[in-house]
Design a protein around this nucleic acid. Structure first.
Length: 304
DNA sequence: ATACGGTTTCCTTTTACGTCA
DNA sequence: CTTGACGTAAAAGGAAACCGT
């Protein structure tokens, strides 16, 4: 510490702290901070430095005055100088939290009060958080848009398949003649065994109720859908591709609830990985969970 | 061990100032 | 010159953590 300053901080602090009327809290110490006259940031843009106060005859000699009150009543908000901001930014890059020693050191280096440094860090953290939230929002929105497009595609595929099944059902009712087994069954499937499928409803369907080419085309259509992520699409469609279609012969129509539950299942199970909670971490490109239930997200309104 | 008060730090929201178009 | 929008420093108020008693 240099001792050449007119208002050497240690001297002032010693003088004032000896007065028992002033509690020795960090706020008080903050308010007692006197920038060393030798530091490089005594420009007119620095806020509330003691030179200003001296010029306005604010400093009192008896130490009974509450300096904080003085500041509050006389302060003029001034912008920090670019150099001060630059150094604060540098320090913030290193560590966005401020330990007391660092705060005092920074304040001394910048010719500010420690309280100003603390406030600057608080505001800087808030700005950083806002920026991060904006970024997160953009990622979530693009993810939502992508998912919505996928979902729309799926619904269209679904509708198409339902129409196909309707047509084939009508055809099969016209021609009730049974065939021994379907010659178009895949070669790796033994003819006398049902087609392996995770869904029991599918295996229970008789070959004559649904034309196999319809089923295979359905599968291939779905897999060929123009989703940006092929695996993602296949995984999403696995529960939907066959059972709903084949059950169509028994259930005359899909209800909107079924579609909704399908959509929710798809969305919740495979499309909403847990979001990173550390807001200063880099965003994951596919992070898209705000911690809200998926059904609530479906009602969100994107205002632009 | 624990309840309590004081202090400090942080966060969020609000206020007020400075700048610029 | 005035005005409104915007960025930002600072204040206010509350919550949480820590410490000494």
């Amino acid at each position: 510490m240099e001792s050449g300053g007119v208002y050497d901080d240690s001297v002032v602090a010693n003088v004032l702290l000896r007065n028992e009327m002033i509690p020795c809290t960090s706020d008080v110490l903050d308010s007692l901070w006197v920038p060393n006259s030798s530091h490089p940031f005594h420009g007119s843009t620095s806020m509330m430095n003691f030179e200003d106060m001296r010029a306005e005859n604010i400093i009192v000699e008896d130490g009974n005055q509450d300096f904080d009150e003085c500041f509050r009543h006389t302060e003029k908000k001034r912008r920090l100088s670019p150099e001060q901001v630059r150094l604060l930014e540098q320090s913030f890059e290193v560590e966005n939290k401020l330990e007391p020693e660092r705060k005092v050191q920074l304040a001394k280096d910048l010719g500010l009060q420690p309280r100003q440094v603390a406030i600057w860090f608080q505001n800087r953290r808030a700005r950083c958080k806002n920026k991060h939230l904006e970024k997160e929002f953009d990622v979530l929105k693009s993810s939502y848009d992508r998912l919505k497009a996928d979902c729309d595609t799926l619904y269209q595929e679904n509708e198409k398949l339902r129409n196909e099944v309707r047509l084939l059902s009508a055809k099969s009712r016209k021609k009730p003649k049974k065939e021994p087994y379907d010659p178009i069954v895949p070669s790796n499937v033994e003819p006398d065994k049902p087609i392996p499928t995770p869904n029991a409803a599918v295996s229970s369907v008789t070959p004559d109720s649904v034309a196999p080419d319809a089923a295979s085309s359905a599968k291939s259509d779905v897999c060929d859908s123009d989703s940006p992520d092929g695996n993602h699409s296949a995984a999403m469609l696995e529960p939907a591709d066959s059972s709903h279609v084949f059950l169509e012969t028994e259930h005359s129509d899909f209800s909107q609830d079924e579609d909704d539950s399908l959509g929710r299942g798809i969305l919740s199970s495979s499309c909403f990985p847990k979001l990173e909670t550390e807001w200063c971490d880099d965003l994951q490109p596919n992070s898209c969970n705000l911690g809200f239930p998926i059904q609530d997200q479906g009602t969100w309104f994107w205002s632009y």
